[in-house]
Computed example of a mutant assay.
Amino acid sequence: MAANFWDSTHCKAWILDRAKIECANQKDKQYITLVELRRMRIHYCKLIQLLGSSLKIRQRAIATAIVFFKRFYLKNSFVDCEPRLIATTCLYLSSKVEESITQAKKCAMKMKEIDTTFNFTMNDILECEFYVLEELSFELIIFHPYKSLPTYLQNCGLDCLDTVWGIVNDSYKTDVSLLYPPYIIALGCIYLVAFIKKKDLKQWFSELSIDMKEIWDVVKELLNYYEFDRAPITPAESPEAIYAKLPIKNSNGAPPPIMASAGGR
Results as ranks from 00 to 15, higher is better:
residue 189 C to G: 07
residue 235 P to G: 04
residue 226 Y to S: 10
residue 146 Y to A: 00
residue 247 P to A: 02
residue 206 S to N: 09
residue 227 E to N: 10
residue 241 A to Y: 04
residue 184 I to F: 09
residue 183 Y to N: 14
residue 121 T to K: 11
residue 41 R to P: 00
residue 93 L to M: 08
residue 80 D to F: 13
residue 218 V to F: 03
residue 264 G to K: 14
residue 261 S to Y: 12
residue 1 M to F: 14
residue 226 Y to P: 00
residue 109 M to F: 08
residue 133 L to P: 08
residue 136 L to R: 05
residue 139 E to T: 01
residue 213 K to G: 00
residue 120 F to Q: 09
residue 263 G to N: 10
residue 68 F to R: 06
residue 19 A to H: 13
residue 75 K to A: 09
residue 4 N to I: 11
residue 246 L to S: 04
residue 230 R to D: 14
residue 188 G to C: 05
residue 211 D to K: 08
residue 120 F to P: 07
residue 91 L to Q: 03
residue 243 Y to P: 01
residue 203 Q to F: 12
residue 75 K to W: 12
residue 56 K to A: 05
residue 27 K to W: 12
residue 223 L to T: 13
residue 170 D to V: 06
residue 251 S to L: 13
residue 56 K to E: 14
residue 191 Y to H: 12
residue 170 D to Q: 14
residue 102 T to K: 10
residue 184 I to E: 10
residue 110 K to P: 02
residue 23 C to W: 08
residue 204 W to E: 09
residue 236 A to R: 05
residue 105 K to S: 14
residue 171 S to V: 01
residue 138 F to Y: 15
residue 89 T to K: 02
residue 21 I to F: 13
residue 2 A to M: 06
residue 174 T to P: 02
residue 196 I to Q: 07
residue 264 G to A: 15
residue 33 T to L: 05
residue 100 S to T: 05
residue 15 I to S: 04
residue 167 I to W: 10
residue 106 K to L: 15
residue 175 D to L: 04
residue 48 I to W: 05
residue 22 E to D: 15
residue 191 Y to S: 12
residue 184 I to N: 04
residue 18 R to E: 15
residue 7 D to Y: 07
residue 108 A to R: 02
residue 245 K to P: 07
residue 86 I to A: 08
residue 19 A to P: 00
residue 173 K to M: 14
residue 116 T to L: 10
residue 185 I to K: 06
residue 136 L to V: 06
residue 211 D to F: 07
residue 150 P to K: 07
residue 115 D to N: 11
residue 48 I to Q: 01
residue 152 Y to E: 02
residue 154 Q to H: 15
residue 89 T to F: 09
residue 216 W to A: 05
residue 92 Y to E: 05
residue 254 A to I: 00
residue 248 I to P: 01
residue 45 C to W: 04
residue 93 L to K: 00
residue 152 Y to D: 01
residue 86 I to C: 10
residue 187 L to R: 11
residue 59 Q to A: 03
residue 28 D to R: 02
residue 195 F to L: 14
residue 43 H to T: 01
residue 104 A to M: 02
residue 174 T to V: 08
residue 188 G to Y: 06
residue 155 N to K: 15
residue 171 S to R: 03
residue 24 A to V: 05
residue 91 L to K: 04
residue 153 L to S: 06
residue 235 P to H: 08
residue 199 K to E: 13
residue 120 F to H: 15
residue 224 N to G: 15
residue 240 E to F: 12
residue 192 L to F: 13
residue 4 N to P: 01
residue 96 K to V: 04
residue 29 K to G: 02
residue 265 R to W: 14
residue 235 P to F: 06
residue 196 I to E: 09
residue 208 L to V: 03
residue 175 D to H: 10
residue 193 V to S: 03
residue 4 N to Y: 11
residue 67 V to C: 11
residue 78 F to K: 00
residue 48 I to D: 01
residue 157 G to W: 13
residue 62 I to Q: 08
residue 86 I to Y: 01
